[in-house]
C-alpha cells in the first residue's frame, strides 16, 4: 500500500494507521457487524423488551438474507467511498465486510435448511432445481465460497493478479442476490427495487470512472471532454435534422 495518505499518517493517539485499524476500527466494525445477529437473538428470545415474531422461521430467513445483501452492498461501497472521501485505508475493512456477507448468507441458508424445509433433502433438491429464485440464491451462495476461501493474505499472494479477477465475481453475486430477493416477493417489489437502484449506482460509478467508458462513447479518445463534444455534436445534428 503506497497511497499518499498512508505515507504520512496523522498522529492519533500516537498510533500508526495500521495499528489504529487493528486496535480500534476493525474491532468496532466487527462488533457493529454482529448487531444484526444480536437483534435477531433479542427478537427471538424476547430480550430487552423485543417482541418475538409470530413466524420465527420467516423472520430469521428474511433478516439473515437482507443482512447478507446489505454486507454485499457495503463491500461494493468501499471503493467509491475511499475514492470520493479520500480515505484509501478503508480498503483494510473490506475483507471483514465480505466475510460477514458470507456469514449471514450461510446463516440464511442454514435457517432455510433446518427450520424452513426441516432438513427434507428431497425438497431442498427440488427447490434448488425447480424454483428459479432458489436456484439463483443458491448459486450466489456457492459463488461466495471461493471468495471466502481465498480471502487470506496467503491466498492473495499466491493468486496474484488472478485474485482480483476471481473476486470480480462479487458483481455477479450482488446481481444474483438482488434478483433472488426480487423474485421471492409476491407482488410488492419496492424494497428489492431499492437494492437494484443502489446496485445500479454502484455499477454506474465504476463505469464512469473507468477509462473504457469514454472510449466507448468517443472511439479513439479516453478523455471525457472529447466524448462530451462528440455527444453534443450527435445530439445537435439529430435535433437539426428535418422531420421525415
Amino acid at each position: 500500500m503506497t497511497s499518499p495518505a498512508a505515507a504520512r499518517p496523522k498522529p492519533f493517539l500516537g498510533l500508526t494507521v495500521e495499528r489504529r485499524y487493528r486496535l480500534i476500527y476493525k474491532p468496532v466494525v466487527f462488533l457493529a457487524s454482529l448487531m444484526p445477529l444480536a437483534w435477531m437473538a433479542c427478537s427471538l428470545f424476547g430480550w430487552l423488551g423485543f417482541t418475538p415474531p409470530v413466524d420465527v422461521v420467516k423472520f430469521l430467513e428474511l433478516r439473515c438474507g437482507k443482512t447478507a445483501l446489505n454486507f454485499i452492498m457495503l463491500t461494493l461501497m468501499v471503493t467509491p467511498v475511499r475514492q470520493l472521501a479520500r480515505l484509501p485505508n478503508l480498503l483494510r475493512l473490506r475483507r471483514m465486510l465480505g466475510l460477514f456477507a458470507f456469514f449471514y448468507a450461510t446463516l440464511h441458508f442454514t435457517v432455510y435448511l433446518l427450520l424452513d424445509v426441516d432438513l427434507d433433502w428431497h425438497q431442498v433438491a427440488a427447490d434448488i432445481l425447480k424454483r428459479p429464485y432458489i436456484t439463483i440464491g443458491f448459486t450466489a451462495l456457492v459463488l461466495l465460497i471461493p471468495l471466502a476461501l481465498t480471502s487470506t493474505n496467503r491466498m492473495m499472494r499466491r493468486l496474484g493478479r488472478r485474485w482480483s479477477r476471481l473476486h470480480r465475481l462479487v458483481y455477479l453475486i450482488a446481481v444474483l442476490g438482488v434478483w433472488h430477493f426480487y423474485w421471492q416477493e409476491k407482488i410488492d417489489v419496492r424494497e428489492p427495487l431499492v437494492y437494484a437502484g443502489l446496485l445500479l449506482v454502484l455499477f454506474g460509478y465504476r463505469w464512469v470512472r473507468s477509462p473504457n467508458m469514454w472510449a466507448v462513447l468517443a472511439p479513439g479518445s479516453t478523455r471525457p471532454a472529447a466524448a462530451v463534444r462528440r455527444l453534443a455534436r450527435v445530439a445537435a445534428s439529430s435535433a437539426l435534422r428535418p422531420p421525415v
Binding site: V54, L115, D116, D118
Partner: peptide, 14 residues
C-alpha cells in the same frame, strides 16, 4: 405441496 403451520414446533413446522 407442503406448508408451514405457524406455531408448530420449530423443527417440525412443515
Amino acid at each position: 405441496a407442503t406448508e408451514r403451520r405457524i406455531g408448530a414446533p420449530l423443527f417440525h413446522e412443515r
